[in-house]
Amino acid sequence: MSVHTRIEGLGARAIAASHAGARLFVIGAKSLRGVFDRDYPKGEVARQMYVVGNKSLLFIAITMGFLGMVMVIQSGHQLNRVTGDLSQLGPQFLKLFIQEFAPTITALMLSTRVGAGIAAEVGSMKVTEQIDALRLSGITPTSYLIAPRLLACLSMGSILTVIAIVIAFTAGGISAWSVFGLNPTAFFDSSMVRTYDIVIGSVKALSYSLAIPIISGFCGLEARGGSEGVGTATTSAVIGSSFAVLLLDFMISGIGLMVFGGGV
């Protein structure tokens, strides 16, 4: 009996998950169409851009600054142990940050900061029946609410990623100089960066910026039952978008390696 009910339970969960996946897909498609319908209030995109950028700038600056320093110190120690040659530290660091760490860590931070915010906002509207009120007045919530947030995330996500690279590279260079006495001209060297790295980094940043608002908006629209429902929506938005970021990172890097041979 217990095995049987367990299998049934698993099956029911799988079905529920695939239904949720289908709803997520529909909401994503509708939000993208909403971008072209332009069915949102005037100035809403600018307002959301301000919210996304302003809320996250200091946060991303702090985290990326520290991350840049940590990465340089860790890899510098290791290089010192093995080869003692630090001349490649800066160029390789920049390459790795452009195509991997800057977009991914920025997106993880945006998931906690912006994703949670979107889910809390949309979720509160859902449980207080404001979403239903929108529908009754003939407005599609996806075009009205999610589309402007999507545009804001796309633009600010890219800008923040660039800022993240600059801050991490600068902080890394300063700590390479102060910890290992490495000459800044040797560190600040972009000769290793190929077009491939920039393309992969941009593709990542854009895909993350698409995934975060769609997943968070979806979690908000699925919220149910009072303040507890809003809490659940916020939590699942954070974890859902963070996981999506890591999965996309893996997939894009994997495709890059398999199809383009890692740009080598």
């Binding site: 946060f59 900061r113 949670a116 809390a120 809003v230 809490g231 916020t234």
Partner: peptide, 16 residues
């Protein structure tokens, strides 16, 4: 209830 959502947001940011 609004405070609860804000608290969660502030907590994850502070943790990061």
């Amino acid at each position: 209830a609004v405070g609860v959502g804000k608290a969660v947001n502030a907590a994850v940011v502070a943790a990061a």
